[in-house]
Amino acid sequence: MSSKDVGMQPAGARAAPMGLPASPSRDDLVKQAPPGPGSGGVGWLQANMAKLVLSPSLAVTLVFVYGFIVWTVVLSFSTSRLLPIYKWAGLEQYARLWATPNWYVAIKNLGIYGGLYIAISLFLGLFIAILLDQRIRGEGGLRPIFLYPMAISFIVTGTAWKWFLNPGLGLDRVMHSWGWTSFTFDWLINPDMAIYTVVIAGVWQTSGFIMAMFLAGLRGIDNEVIKAAQIDGAPTLQIYWRIIIPQLRPVFLSALIILLHMAIKSYDLVIALTGGGPGNATELPSTFMYSYTFTRNAMGVGAASAVMMLMTIAAVIVPYLYSELRERRT
C-alpha cells in the first residue's frame, strides 16, 4: 500500500501492518546516528540511554509474547486438563487434538469462512475502489459509508447481523411484507448455512478497509502508461485488466496477509453472531481453543490447538515481515 497520495486510509484498521512497505531512501544518508556520548561527556548513562529506554518494551515483549508462547507450547506437551499441570505427556495432546472430530469441523469451517471471506473482500474491495476511482461526484461522502464498519466492534457487528437475519422477524418478515411470501431465510439456524452468515458479516465489516487500500494503490499508479494506452485506443476494461490491476500486486499481497491473519484470529464475530452454533456448525479454531481450554477441561488440547493456530499464522507472517524489513536495507 505504498502510494504517494490518497484521500484516505482505514479508520480502525484492526489488522494493520499498514505502512510496512515504503522503503526510506533517506535512511541511507545517515548510516548511524552517532550514539556516542554527546559533547557533554556524560558517560555511560547518556551513552546507553537509548537502549535503557527501549529495554522495558523489549523485556515485556520477550516475556509476554515469546515467553508465553513457549509456556503454551510446554502446556501442549503436558497432561493439563482443568488446570495447568507440568507433567510431560509427549505428543499425546496433539494426538488427541487430531482425533477430535470437532477440530476437523473447525478447520473445515475456517477453510470455508477464510476462503470466501478473503476472496469476496478482495473482490468487493477492488471493485468498489475501481468504481470510486471513476471521478465520482460525492466520493468524499461515499467513502466514509464504506469504511465506518471498521470502526465498530465485531460484537456489535455480530449483534446487528444476528438481528437483521433473524429468521421470522428479520429479512424474512421484510420480504413477506413486500409481497414475497414464500421467501425464507433461515441461515442463522440452519447448520449447513450458518457459516455463510459469518462470511456475510465479516465481509461487511472489512471490505471497506480493503477498498481503501486498493483506492490508495489506484491513486498511486503512474499515469503515463495509462495515457499511452488510451491514446492507442485500448478500451477501459482492458486498461484495468492488463495495466492497472497487475500494478496493484503489492496491495493484493498486503490485503491478503491482513485478511488471512484476521480470518484465522476471528473469534468475536462468531461468538456474537452464532455462538459457534447451531450445534458446532460454526466452530472455528479460535472458538475451539477457547472452549476446550476454559470450559471443557481439556487445557492440553486447547494449548495444542493454539500452537497450531500460531504456526499457521507464523508460516505466512514471518516470511512477509522478513522480506518487508529486508527491503528497507537500512
Binding site: P17, S57, L58, T61, L62, F64, V65, Y66, F68, I69, W71, T72, L75, P84, H261, I264, K265, Y267, P285, S286, M289, Y290, T293, M299, G302, A303, S305, A306, V307, M309, L310, I313, A314, I317, V318, L321, L325
Partner: peptide, 15 residues
C-alpha cells in the same frame, strides 16, 4: 520481534 507480536493469535497467550 516486536512487530511479530502484533500478529500472533492471542489464543496462544491466554492461559
Amino acid at each position: 520481534l516486536m512487530l511479530f507480536g502484533c500478529f500472533i493469535p492471542f489464543q496462544v497467550v491466554l492461559v
